[in-house]
Design a binder for these strands. Structure first.
Length: 438
RNA sequence: CCGGACGUGGCGCAGCCUGGUAGCGCGCGAGUUUUGGGUACUUGAGGCCGCAGGUUCAAAUCCUGCCGUCCGGACCA
């Protein structure tokens, strides 16, 4: 994309409405604009980030056999009356009427809808297990929206729902999902630590939330460093083998990890001091097994092996996609701006033309830009070098390819790595190889 | 929902106390200048001062109500 023709409105100063760093940077880097309290428009670069996150989430869901669907944002109140949650859910649920005075709601979550869809189509235990997910906008009418997209009212979320014949099978599904989550966050370039979560009235131990360490997090977190050292992408576990899943699960859940409300100081003291990590965390994912709660309340059954009806065991698994955009920035920025992890950056690199109008510079920039117009943002504006550098740092492109008359004559560019600040002069070929390497 | 603040060109703010019809910086347009980290100067455009009512000869300024937004807290399957 050519910067001179793009809708990428950066701001030099901090808008008064934004207090926390991710909110400020998202506004300043031209990723989002607020349209109402807790509701945001995503501008081109922000949308790219959202898509990049979604795509990684999607690939990891598909990898464990989940199938993507797309359910609507608006739901009929009748569905929620069947499960009994229409009255139970508080004013957080945005209730709407259509022209016929029929009651609708903007979905805060989709358990009812997916259970109904499942029940309509799946009639036999032979069709189990099933795992479905979608990536869709949701709305919760928070009393007090804050922190930009991290706690907005409208937000993009991936939620998956699983249906298993029995508890053991549901446990295996849960563990597969746990692995998928660990892989997803690692690929996104952040470390999200799984922590045992309160299962509330349903009980059981199958509930984990994933938190990214960031000073603005809503909960205090304590965990063993072992959890951030593991390379989950290299995890050899065979997800079809329950025994292997068991070993994997133990390894994930054995090291200490807890939020402040579940914190156990005795267990914490047992963690070697140099491995203790403590701070604040932002919840970016939550996986939860809730058994037959919805299949029972909505009376959805399949025929079991004996021919009698069975209530499938369910779980739900969420990832806050739009919240992640903010959380990643919270975890990865400096005074100059955002430092995007490679996998989620809107552009791989910005090409900074220091002297627009200079034949050599223009030609070299065009040559580089044309190798991949999707991956590159070409700063072809006539601004001064300083302004371009400042914007480049602010927007946080992983690489900056600086083309100036000094080195362009020799066919070389200056390549800067945003994360480390390291710069070196290299040939165009070497720059392209480095930047586009995967 | 409780408590606290704020709404003045695109952004950041001053003016309000002590009413007299709006100002600064940044940004934007034109020009000169500069040419590797937000250059300097000249010039120009841009505002029913959140909305409604009231007081007054006169309201951005005083009074009342409403709306919006932010901060802290409570809340956040």
């Amino acid at each position: 994309m050519r910067l001179s023709r793009s809708f990428l409105p950066t701001l030099k100063e901090n808008p008064a409405e934004a207090q926390i760093v991710s909110h400020r940077l998202m506004l300043r880097a031209g990723l989002i604009r607020q349209t109402a309290s807790g509701i945001y428009a995503w501008l081109p670069a922000g949308l790219k980030v959202l898509r990049n996150i979604s795509q990684i989430v999607r690939e990891e869901q598909d990898r464990i056999g989940a199938q993507e669907v797309l359910m609507p944002t608006l739901q009929s109140a009748d569905l929620w009356k069947r499960s009994g949650r229409y009255d139970a859910y508080g004013p957080e649920m945005l209730r709407i009427q259509d022209r016929h005075k029929r009651e609708l709601l903007y979905g805060p979550t989709n358990e009812e809808m997916i259970t109904d869809l499942f029940g309509q189509a799946v009639k036999s235990y032979k069709d189990l297990p099933q795992m479905l997910y979608h990536i869709q906008w949701k709305f919760r009418d928070e009393v007090r929206p804050r922190f930009g997209v991290m706690r907005g009212r409208e937000f993009l979320m991936k939620d998956a729902y699983s249906f298993d014949l029995d508890y053991d099978s549901a446990v295996a599904t849960y563990r597969r999902m746990l692995l998928a989550y660990l892989r997803t966050f690692q690929r996104l370039g952040v470390r999200a630590v799984p922590m045992r979560a309160d299962t509330g009235p349903i009980g059981g131990e199958l509930s984990h939330e994933f938190l990214i360490l960031a000073p603005t997090g809503e909960s205090g977190v304590f965990y063993d460093a072992a959890l951030e050292e593991q390379d989950w992408l290299d995890e050899p576990v065979n997800v079809e083998d329950p025994k292997a899943l068991d070993v994997f699960y133990k390894r994930v859940t054995t090291p200490y990890a807890a939020t402040d409300e579940m914190h156990d100081t005795a267990a914490w003291d047992a963690v070697p001091e140099d491995r203790r990590r403590e701070g604040r965390g932002v919840e970016v994912g939550h996986i939860f097994h809730f058994g037959t709660k919805y299949t029972q309340s909505m009376d959805v059954t399949v025929s079991g092996p004996e021919g009698t009806p069975v209530y499938p065991e369910m779980g739900s698994y969420g990832i806050g996609v739009s919240r992640l955009a903010g959380a990643i920035i919270e975890a990865s920025h400096d005074d100059a701006g955002i430092i995007w992890p490679d996998a989620v950056a809107p552009f791989r690199a910005v090409i900074v033309n220091l002297k627009v109008g200079d034949e050599t510079c223009d030609a070299m920039c065009e040559q580089i830009y044309n190798t991949n117009t999707e991956a590159f943002l070409y700063d072809d504006r006539t601004d001064r070098a300083g302004a371009k550098f400042a914007d480049a740092d602010l927007m946080g492109h992983p690489w900056q390819i600086v083309v100036g008359p000094r080195s362009a004559k020799e066919g070389r560019v200056e390549l800067k790595r945003r994360a480390t600040g390291e710069r070196k002069e290299v040939s165009v070929e070497d720059a392209l190889a480095l930047v586009l390497a995967d």
